[in-house]
Amino acid sequence: MKNFQIIKALSSSSAVASITKDTSVMFIAGGTNLVDLMKKNVVAPDKLIDINALDLKKIEFLNGKVSIGALAKNSQVAEDQSIKEKLPLLALALAAGASQQIRHMATVGGNMLQRTRCPYFYNTDMPCNKRVPKSGCGAIGGTNRMAAVFGTSDSCIAVHPSDMCVALAALDATVLVEGPKGKRQINFTDFHRLPGNTPEKDNTLEIRELITSIEIPDNNFTKNVHYLKVRDRSSYAFALVSVAVALELKNNVISNAKLAMGGVAHKPWRLTETEDFLKGKTASEDIFKQAGKLGMKGARGYGDNDFKLTLGANAITEALTIAASK
């Protein structure tokens, strides 16, 4: 790892002011992804701004919404009793990610900003448009079992690896950020982006902007929720496909539905068309099978990951079945 300077930011405004326009200065919070990327020489900052002293760790239950500080640890949120009661889908998704040691270190903001685990992104001997723009995509035509099936481009077929973000996309969260021009809010589903011709950009955060918190509006998804994560081993592995489901059921009729998928796109993949299809329907095996097929409509495989088309449909059906039976 290249050596670097590190300074501690004592306020979010001073943290933002410390960042330069290029990537030579970066924020560090939990560091679980950044330190790994630095060891692999995928990123090599000259200077790190340690933001852990900032007062951004609180989980607050406000009027009509829950606010979670960007520096709240993944385990802190996953095991918060009120989060488990009010936002069980978020707690389930967080608990499905990484290991307990990593969840103790990793922060909510850092989870959102973690980079893809596409092997071509990580291997500096390989071409990758995300790591080195215009160098080509090794995954297209290469080993691409983990790759995306939705929203891909000729430049990039990487997936966003987070579980937490899949739940937050389903729950209509908002991202609060602070930058040199002041504060602004971004809809969670607009935070991460599709690769297009600029896969080097994972999200819509502007240079020098710092995530300060996320907000989740109050909802009634306290019972019929499920986070289904399908992976190569039963724990501590990234998702091949994951599905976050939140349903409101009245006499077995679906009055409200939220669905999002992980492991299928460059961003958490919200299934709004499937949600609309489900609303007003009576929960049944047949409806959930139809929802699975509809959810994967338009998906495209790249060879090694063709299985995700069938797996995705089955996972949607299974997640809906489990959520409805709770």
Partner: peptide, 13 residues
């Protein structure tokens, strides 16, 4: 008192 991974933790932090 919390278990963490020392390989991903910068000592200076």
């Amino acid at each position: 008192g919390t278990r963490i991974l020392s390989c991903l933790s910068l000592a200076t932090m």
